[in-house]
Design a protein around this nucleic acid. Sequence first.
DNA 1: GGTACCCCCTCACGCGGCGTGAGGTTCAAG
DNA 2: CTTGAACCTCACGCCGCGTGAGGGGGTACC
Lengths: 247, 247
Amino acid sequence: MPPDPRFRVGDIAARTGVSVRTLHHYDEIGLLRPAHRTVSAHGSGHRLYSVADLSRLQQILSLRQLGFTLDEIADALAGPRFDPLAVVRLHLARAKEVLKSQHQLCDRLEHLAGHLERAEEVSADTFLRTVEATIMAENHFNLPPDQAATLAAHWAQYSPADIEAVQNEWPILIGKVKDAMTAKKDPRSPEVRALAARADELTRMFTGGNASVSAQLRQRYESDPELQQKAGIDPAVMAYLAQARGE
Amino acid sequence: MPPDPRFRVGDIAARTGVSVRTLHHYDEIGLLRPAHRTVSAHGSGHRLYSVADLSRLQQILSLRQLGFTLDEIADALAGPRFDPLAVVRLHLARAKEVLKSQHQLCDRLEHLAGHLERAEEVSADTFLRTVEATIMAENHFNLPPDQAATLAAHWAQYSPADIEAVQNEWPILIGKVKDAMTAKKDPRSPEVRALAARADELTRMFTGGNASVSAQLRQRYESDPELQQKAGIDPAVMAYLAQARGE
DNA sequence: GGTACCCCCTCACGCGGCGTGAGGTTCAAG
DNA sequence: CTTGAACCTCACGCCGCGTGAGGGGGTACC
């Protein structure tokens, strides 16, 4: 049995480029506690990271690159069925996007350089497109996670069984709502209000309770008739539910 | 004569992705003032950007991407002979570096994903290398400008004539210092101190007064005998100058 | 067993570059 | 002349560490 290796902050810093301060910080906020520490009388001992810790560090950096805040990352990693492979795949997808936008940026910069070399007048459009490419490259790198990533990261926390259960319940629930509508039941009745509440609950599971995600999702539903049909939601149902919620 | 086009904050934001707040901010700190404003009685009018402003915006974003702070960018753009083409070329070079590191990152992530898919045990080394690739990709994107960029950006502010003048003066100055040394003149004499002061001045022109750059430069000179010969500086001269400065 | 040297530790302050309302004004279309 | 969208000016807030200061711990070589 090989004694599993231990890594000290300096080792990790030297080999990866992660700063010592960053490791300290992640420890402070409880995001990445080293598996062990050396024992000592006075101060606290030196941090000793295990291989599992390195794995977690990799996940953290991938999620950070995806634009999540450290708090969000902590939540994601704490999820019951969180999936490292899914995270790596998301990061990979993002990295490929960056590649593409970076390529475009190079094209644009070369274009602009060409104009400047020939001392030509440069059009506003050229500047605008160059700036756009610059910003897009930045966005793919730094910015808040897009819905896709947010949703994916959220879904990764649920098991396939959970997901299936939700997807099965949804049409049933909508069916009940439609029944209530055709029966002309009062939307403010306790029965209908319960249905609406459950619908909201399921929606929250879908969106992870993220306000901006659910807002965007609603917009897309409202503007896309096809999606409405697939989910069985039409404006009438939406209005009915809104009434039930007391709006 | 076509009336040159004017752009409003919203136009620019919509077409490039630069936020309105960012434009406001650059205006506030005096980094990018719009060429015009609409006139109005109470508040200040709407900002109207000219094509020249767009050009400046492009330069700002390129320099920002290179890792300069907004203050540094302001200085660079205020330089007497600052060169937009040089900036674009630097940005392009950087963008290509990013492409390379991003490629490596993709390789590493695919490697890691492969291991995870096959549910194999993943080695510490694999994690470390993946983390390293992640950090390197970030560094090429976000980090403070390396000396190369700093120096290049600084040099871009001088005309070829300026540069030549400095390069001509340097050997003459060093010659005078050596003369003083062989004549065993007191390093604290006003004459020698003046020479040292001028040497520092020229050095500052070389390094742009950037402390970290000049520090790095000194280290390289101290550790590289070849460079010393080319510049005519040997440890004895350095020591003599240090005395003249009163160290 | 000493002891030199480097690495590690714990505070704790600070900050760059905007995001994000709040509350009022201006512009262009109808 | 009236909208409504787009613009304006404050002004507070924040993430994720960087960067010292001041002091203990580990280890390799004598």
